[in-house]
Amino acid sequence: MNSSAVIIGASGGIGGALEAALVEEGAFGVVHGFARSRGGAQHLDLLDEASIAAAAALVAKGPAPGLVIVATGVLHAEGHGPEKAARDLDAAWLAQVYAVNTIGPALVAKHFLPLMPKDGRAVFAALSARVGSISDNQVGGWYGYRASKAALNMMVRTLAIEERRRSSRAIVVALHPGTVDTELSKPFQGNVQAGRLFTPDRAAMQLLDVIEELKVPDSGKLFDYEGKEVAF
């Protein structure tokens, strides 16, 4: 109860479920939920570093965060979806996808990792995706989403190396939540295997179970919702 938890993207399906689950569990003295759609002190826009810094400053006033989860991501928007072929690539959309999926979480780490305790277990986790695995890519397509998540995985690996120098017990990981019944996956749920489309509540509990089992040597890696390592 002497530490806090932070959820970035708490207005999303997975982020909201994570926030609710952590509040219900009561393992942390304070649970901070931030999102672009929230107002006041809970507002955080990944495209605005000043808002990230302001959220970090608010958290810094209370117990040190022992858990920070970045539960954000973009796959499609009005007029844009995953690219099926190179002819579909659009520079502005690629920049938007990278800004949300890679740069935003990296800036969250920039401002929040220094707040996490140097002594004791602390976990920083960012939601990634199996399709961001370069070695696992056998079908192509989805250029921007794949590449931005692969870049996020590299950010996580690099952050983990640096953070290890500050705290020997720090754990920095990427997590693949599976296909979750949210707005992000809704247009693409038709091909999901039976039993593999998770509710946000179930996804949140699975992710928290994985986080609970993480060990220091796991830092810098990508794990799926079953706790299995996914190769970069």
Score class of each variant (00 low, 15 high):
residue 103 I to N: 12
residue 59 V to T: 10
residue 225 Y to F: 11
residue 82 P to I: 00
residue 137 N to K: 06
residue 17 A to Q: 07
residue 194 A to L: 15
residue 151 A to V: 09
residue 142 W to H: 06
residue 110 K to L: 02
residue 124 F to T: 00
residue 42 Q to L: 09
residue 73 G to R: 01
residue 207 L to Y: 15
residue 31 V to F: 07
residue 147 A to T: 15
residue 143 Y to S: 08
residue 166 R to L: 11
residue 111 H to V: 11
residue 185 S to H: 12
residue 199 T to W: 02
residue 228 K to E: 07
residue 107 L to V: 10
residue 38 R to Y: 09
residue 192 V to E: 03
residue 62 G to R: 08
residue 192 V to K: 01
residue 32 H to E: 03
residue 42 Q to W: 13
residue 188 F to D: 15
residue 161 I to K: 15
residue 201 D to M: 04
residue 113 L to Y: 03
residue 205 M to N: 06
residue 81 G to N: 10
residue 119 D to V: 15
residue 119 D to I: 14
residue 35 A to D: 00
residue 159 L to K: 12
residue 159 L to V: 06
residue 47 L to M: 14
residue 50 A to P: 08
residue 167 S to F: 11
residue 111 H to Q: 10
residue 200 P to S: 07
residue 17 A to G: 07
residue 57 A to P: 14
residue 136 D to E: 11
residue 5 A to N: 12
residue 30 V to R: 10
residue 208 L to K: 14
residue 110 K to A: 06
residue 212 E to W: 13
residue 228 K to F: 08
residue 179 T to V: 07
residue 59 V to I: 08
residue 48 D to G: 03
residue 52 I to V: 10
residue 210 V to L: 05
residue 15 G to E: 01
residue 206 Q to C: 11
residue 126 A to C: 09
residue 153 N to R: 04
residue 133 S to W: 02
residue 179 T to E: 14
residue 121 R to L: 05
residue 184 L to P: 08
residue 146 R to G: 12
residue 211 I to Q: 00
residue 207 L to Q: 07
residue 113 L to R: 09
residue 193 Q to C: 13
residue 160 A to G: 03
residue 15 G to D: 02
residue 178 G to E: 14
residue 166 R to W: 12
residue 207 L to G: 01
residue 126 A to T: 01
residue 184 L to V: 09
residue 8 I to T: 04
residue 126 A to G: 10
residue 63 P to N: 13
residue 52 I to W: 10
residue 91 A to M: 06
residue 42 Q to K: 11
residue 79 G to C: 00
residue 196 R to C: 06
residue 215 K to Q: 13
residue 133 S to Q: 04
residue 58 L to C: 15
residue 195 G to T: 10
residue 107 L to H: 09
residue 152 L to I: 04
